[in-house]
Design a protein around this nucleic acid. Structure first.
Lengths: 243, 243
DNA sequence: CGCCAGGTTGATTTCGCTCAAGCAATGTGG
DNA sequence: CCACATTGCTTGAGCGAAATCAACCTGGCG
């Protein structure tokens, strides 16, 4: 199971590197103290499960280092990968804010260090600091907007167009932010997980990649992707995008 | 355009029938007064647009009577119907809470009366009453959970299974709540809109309905649906649902 | 060395989309 | 009152994107 000992790294919420990027940045010192008391650091190895669909909500998770994937699986074993969670992101807040059990599972994709903040602490902070609530409202609402967009995309776009879009999102998050010209970056995911992010099968993923290569849209070597011209990728999912 | 005159019906937030069912139920009298001042009632006829994708957020909408559909459309004219909004529901809060422009359009499906509350008013209420924020957090978070479930369903289930699920949701919302035995209820939507709720075409919708009838799962006469046995419908989208 | 997971490839099938026509109900104007 | 559009829905034929099933690489590792 997960290592209870944080080892090296931030010892508390006051010194936490990631804090400015989290919703906790609106807390004052007294509140940070409370947050710090309700906090436990845990470490996970790749493949370890942080929480399971159906589990009662144990709290909110603050990702310090590593990467986590949020998956949703149905009875037949089909699954989609909904999110990638990276340092500074918060995890598991949806269930806590909705007052529900988890409706998705979270699994470490890399060695990951996370702070777990228990439910009563978060709830108490939310009840006394409206700014924190507003922060979370913004986050959840933007996330909802993205989810709705994904519903539209999945219903109307081809696998290839969805993959082009995924690549653009991943470049934006993990790659160089150059708006045009050649780009090279490292995929953070296996083919299987790429497939499940856009709701398709590994086979179709593989074929789509091959087709894109032969069309000169991108070159793939293992997890390294080379894109000669970003704009072409944009047009892959916005065919009528006027230049 | 929309009628500015509310005509008969609730004159203000204090006497509003729907208030107990909205997030505003947590407001005290002073806050209600503020809400009431920031409020304008509007009426829409079927087909009239309440807001458009891309419009800047004008406020939050409180549905008093009627029904509204929330649609998302892409550049090619493909669209999905994301939500049905009924009396007591709030509309347009996602954009306001995210601080974004609308990312979907809202259109009256029936003659509809709505209160529009302007952004500064809602924002001020949220900043001073954490309970209101928590209410909205719960609503948005549950909505996000549903959206994520829809992503999974669309990716893994057949049109028929998705339609069965839609029927169950509609029965739960508009029909008799009997858990088993025969049920009859009125569809609130055209075939076209049913189709766009589950991300398919009217043609496929029509064929699916025909197939379900010939399988004895349900009978359709115009917008009236008769379901001999709800449990069969449940199994349509949960094949391995143990009885 | 052999095993195994991750990935690719091929062959085949199928579900659902597209295009096109037909039909019933309702409305409209002469 | 009839010719006619119009709208919402159904039906048919054909096609195509992607899933499925199955085999087969390939590189890492015990």
């Amino acid at each position: 199971m997960a290592d209870q000992n944080p080892g090296q790294g931030s010892l508390n919420c006051f010194t936490c590197q990631a804090r400015d990027r989290t919703e906790w940045c609106v807390l004052d010192d007294a509140e940070l103290e409370l947050l710090n008391k309700g906090r436990v650091t845990k470490e996970y190895l790749p493949g370890e499960v942080i929480f399971h669909e159906g589990d009662p909500c144990r709290g909110v998770f603050c990702l310090e280092t590593g990467m986590v994937g949020v998956r949703k699986t149905d009875a037949d074993g089909n699954s989609v990968l909904l999110y990638l969670v990276t340092p500074g992101d918060t995890l598991g807040y949806r269930a806590m804010l909705a007052g529900e059990d988890y409706r998705a599972s979270a699994e470490a994709l890399e060695p990951t260090r996370i702070c777990v903040i228990d439910v009563p602490t978060v709830r108490s902070l939310l009840e006394h600091n409206p700014a924190l609530g507003l922060r979370y409202l913004k986050r959840v609402s933007m996330s909802l907007g993205n989810a709705e967009e994904k519903i539209l995309h999945n219903a109307t776009l081809s696998v290839r167009a969805r993959f082009a879009h995924l690549l653009l999102v991943l470049i934006d998050k993990y790659g160089e932010k150059s708006t045009d010209g050649p780009t090279e970056f490292e995929l953070p995911l296996s083919r299987h997980d790429l497939a499940s992010m856009i709701g398709t099968t590994p086979e179709s993923m593989s074929r789509t990649i091959k087709k894109m290569e032969s069309d000169g849209v991108a070159r793939f070597a293992g997890r390294t992707v080379h894109i000669p011209e970003i704009e072409i990728l944009v047009q892959e999912f916005e065919p009528d995008h006027f230049v």
